[in-house]
Design a protein around this nucleic acid. Sequence first.
DNA 1: ATTGTTGCAAACCATTTGCATACGT
DNA 2: ACGTATGCAAATGGTTTGCAACAAT
Lengths: 121, 121
Amino acid sequence: MNKSATKVLKTLEHVGGFASAQEVHQLITRQGDRIGLTTIYRALQSLQKDNFVDVLRRDDGEAIYRLCGNEHHHHLVCKKCGRTVEIEGGVIEKWAETVANKNGFRDVGHSAEIFGTCSDC
Amino acid sequence: MNKSATKVLKTLEHVGGFASAQEVHQLITRQGDRIGLTTIYRALQSLQKDNFVDVLRRDDGEAIYRLCGNEHHHHLVCKKCGRTVEIEGGVIEKWAETVANKNGFRDVGHSAEIFGTCSDC
DNA sequence: ATTGTTGCAAACCATTTGCATACGT
DNA sequence: ACGTATGCAAATGGTTTGCAACAAT
């Protein structure tokens, strides 16, 4: 695994949940590192191939990635300003597990996000 | 609902499962009807807005549509074969509402999906 | 006449690819 | 030197939009 892939991995770790390639790119460049979007995509592809990350699709078709096999939490995101609140999702974990078992699914993960407008907007 | 939307609806009915916009378009033009791809997209948007169809995303990001009841529900998706089970999400609705209120968010929506490997895969 | 519907072409946007440069060993 | 990593710019492909022609009421 090379430098860029490691950086992407760390970023995803810090995020603790799902992030798109473009979001990862923003997060990394915002903290001063210069890196091309292409490199992010290539790093994510490689991480995916090696089963370090999990891929899903948002409703708008954008791909979102997250570390495999990590504990995670969920997000409450403001649609206007992007403010994000980390929330505890114990209920969801149980719900996902129960539903999956009931239907004979294994190797189970889930995604859950809440969107809205925050009090400042 | 207009003529095109009806035609799309019938096609989805005939398909009985998921189909992409492009597939619906092929199916309709193949049986002789001349219709533009744009119209298909617009019909699907409108059907979606009126809760006649359900939208998901393939792994490659292509949107796929299918008829559904107008209950708001969630999905249990097999990562390998794409098999999808509609699941009841009453818990989630309540959770989303509670969390959002607690944090002063308004105009709230949410997304929740469970993914894993189904018993056949 | 006014309103809604259609379809072509162009725009859009996330993602991928070609290619030439820079890096690591 | 050699192979790999990088990033810009261009290509790709599904989807959306502008607009002008067209149908329906």
